[in-house]
């Protein structure tokens, strides 16, 4: 396991030698190529389909590109006064703010659960573990009823608040804090006169950083992909995230044609930020998954 975790930082020369030593198996490569095709084919389809206009979409060859990508983007941008870009912005707010606050809450709770002893800690952690097992989908309707009582449905808060606390994030943070922060360091900080919050922000957070990136990414992707919660909570389509907005374009009812080209172009544009985010944070993600696997 340790070898795997350190492979990425091996010097280039070592890697070349290893490459010579182990000849790639044709069978393995074929399986991997099959996997690549399986994963990329739908993406290629989206890219090709988004270059077609409405009448070409279902009549020309599936993987033949056309020339209407720009027209489609312009049409999508003009749809009801740029509503699509508002949906993108909303998604960024829900996923960005939600994941950031959720990571902070997870770090704080995980740190406390890992480094403090207090009565009821086992119970709290047990309930938390049960929370990991409950899919967030089945909580959406109860959450609607709760938020309706304080009149917060159909607001940004109704989508943000339920997603701030992630049992899985707290669980990960606890595991990570227990492994990455030596108790001696925390005690040394206390001896030096640091307050508990100072210790947390100045000592614990930097040590937990790689784990927090993982929690951030998990939660970001979870909120980005969440459909049911915003679908139930929101009535005003100016508050919609991209998932609910695009699904609405396809379900216009029988009297209006489904806006396929707009939805496909929208889907293409909506994965761009995710790709950028993954490329930017990929390093942390990989290192941490391996490290987590060793230490958990």
């Amino acid at each position: 396991m340790a070898t795997i975790a350190t492979t990425p930082v091996l010097p280039a020369t070592t890697r070349t030698r290893r490459g010579h030593a182990e000849r790639p198996s044709a069978f393995g490569t074929a399986i991997l190529l099959l996997g690549v095709v399986y994963c990329l084919l739908p993406v290629v389809w989206v890219v090709m389909a988004s270059t077609k206009n409405g009448s070409e979409l279902f009549s020309t060859f599936t993987f033949a590109p056309s020339t209407h990508l720009l027209d489609n983007i312009v049409e999508l941008t003009q749809y009801r006064g740029g509503l699509f870009w508002l949906w993108m912005l909303n998604t960024a707010i829900y996923a960005g703010v939600g994941a950031l606050v959720s990571s902070l809450v997870s770090a704080l709770s995980g740190y406390v659960l890992a480094k403090f002893d207090f009565p009821g800690k086992g119970v709290v952690f047990g309930i938390l573990l049960m929370g990991v097992l409950v899919p967030s989908v089945i909580l959406a309707i109860p959450q609607y009823f709760l938020l309706a009582q304080i009149g917060l449905t159909n607001t940004y808060w109704s989508v943000l608040l339920p997603q701030l606390i992630s049992p899985y994030g707290i669980y990960l943070a606890r595991i990570y804090a227990a492994a990455a922060i030596p108790t001696d360091v925390v005690e040394a900080a206390r001896t030096e006169g640091a307050g508990e919050l100072t210790t947390f922000f100045r000592i614990a957070i930097p040590m937990m950083a790689p784990g927090l990136v993982t929690i951030f990414l998990f939660q970001f992707v979870a909120i980005w992909n969440n459909f049911l919660l915003p679908y139930i909570m929101l009535g005003d389509d100016h508050l919609f995230p991209i998932t609910v907005g695009l699904s609405g374009l396809l379900n216009q009812g029988a009297t209006v044609p489904a806006l396929y080209t707009l939805v496909i172009t929208g889907a293409l544009l909506s994965i761009v930020p995710l790709i950028i985010l993954f490329l930017a944070l990929q390093r942390f993600w990989r290192v941490d998954l391996a490290a987590g696997a060793v230490k958990a």
Partner: peptide, 24 residues
């Protein structure tokens, strides 16, 4: 507030009615 067709809007309205607030 533009809705996604009749079925979705009715489901949402019935949920809001049961919850006691949130209906248009």
């Amino acid at each position: 507030n533009k809705q996604d067709g009749g079925d979705a809007a009715v489901t949402k309205l019935l949920t809001a009615i049961k919850a006691g607030s949130g209906a248009p």
